[in-house]
Design a protein around this nucleic acid. Structure first.
Lengths: 142, 142
DNA sequence: CCGCGACCCTCCAGTTACTGGAAAGATGCG
DNA sequence: CGCATCTTTCCAGTAACTGGAGGGTCGCGG
C-alpha cells in the first residue's frame, strides 16, 4: 500500500493548483463562482484548495475536454462526491454516464478511422480528391 | 459496388438536413455565418445543401461533441476537403489529430474506469463515502 | 383565389463557459 | 524599502451557440 498523500503542501494556493491540474487560474475562479469547486479561504483572503479539490478539478478537466457540459459534470460530481446516498439512483446515473462514454468512444473510433483512412489513402502522391472520405464520414456511428 | 447517392432529394432544405445530421437548424445557420459550411441558395433564398455538405456536417457534429474546437474542426475539414494538395502537410496534420484522438480515448477510458469503479464499489448498500474514488480520479492519464 | 399551417428568411438579444485586463492588496527576497 | 511575483475583485470581451420577433414562401384544402 503506497502512501500517496505524503506532501500536503501547506498552502495550496490557486496558482499551484492550476499548475497541478493543468487548468488556467481563471477557470478555477470561475468554477468557484458557479459553485462547482469552492475552496476555503486563508486569513489573507487567498483561496486554499484541498487534495480532494485537486482530484475533483482533474476529473473536471478531463470530463470538460471530452465534451461533457458543466451540468453533466455536476451530475458526475454528485456521484463522485457523495456516493453512498441513495445507491440505486447513483448507480443508475453512473451507468447512464458510462453509456455516454461508450457512445463517445465509438464516435472517436469513427473519427479516427476517417483520419487514418485519409492518411492511408493519400500517402505520398497528389490525388485531386479523396471521394472515399465521403463514405467514411458517414460510416461511423451516425 | 452499392450506389449510395440514389435519392438526391431535390430540395435538401435546412430543416431536412438538420434532421438528417442531428443538429439544430440554428447551428447550421451559424456554421454558414462563420464560413464553415456555406450552402448555395435557391431562387427563393432558401439554403440548398448538397450531399457533401451533409457528410461534412455529420463529421462536424461528431468532432464538436468530442470537444474539438471550431478551429480544430476547420483544420480537420481542410484535410477532409482538399486532401491531395501538399500531401506531406496534410499527412502530418492528420497524424497530429489522430494523436489528439488517441489521447482523448485514453482520457475516456480513465473516466469510464472511474465511473465503473463507483458502480462497482457502491453496488447496493449505503457507504458513507467512497474514498477509493479519490485515487481513481488521479490514476488515469493525468 | 384565399386562407392556413409549416417551413424558411434575417436580425438582434441572451446564455454558457470561459478569457483578458485593470486596479489594488499580500508575500517574499536582497 | 523596493521590487517581482503572487493574489484579490470587478468588469468587459469572446466563442459557440440559442431563443425570439417580425416577416416572406410553400403547398394544400376549401
Amino acid at each position: 500500500m503506497v502512501q500517496r498523500n505524503a506532501v500536503p503542501a501547506v498552502a495550496m494556493n490557486i496558482g499551484e493548483v492550476a499548475a497541478a491540474v493543468d487548468l488556467p487560474v481563471k477557470t478555477l475562479r470561475y468554477y468557484e463562482e458557479i459553485g462547482l469547486v469552492v475552496p476555503q479561504r486563508q486569513p489573507n483572503g487567498y483561496r486554499r484548495y484541498t487534495e480532494r479539490d485537486v482530484h475533483v478539478l482533474r476529473f473536471l478537466r478531463r470530463a470538460r475536454s471530452l465534451g461533457f457540459s458543466i451540468p453533466d459534470c455536476r451530475a458526475l460530481l454528485s456521484l463522485y462526491g457523495d456516493a453512498g446516498r441513495a445507491s440505486a439512483d447513483v448507480r443508475r446515473l453512473a451507468e447512464a454516464r458510462i453509456a455516454d462514454i461508450d457512445r463517445k468512444m465509438a464516435e472517436l473510433r469513427g473519427l479516427r478511422a476517417t483520419l487514418a483512412a485519409l492518411v492511408e489513402a493519400c500517402h505520398g502522391d497528389q490525388h485531386p480528391d479523396c471521394p472515399i472520405l465521403d463514405d467514411l464520414a458517414g460510416a461511423g456511428v451516425s
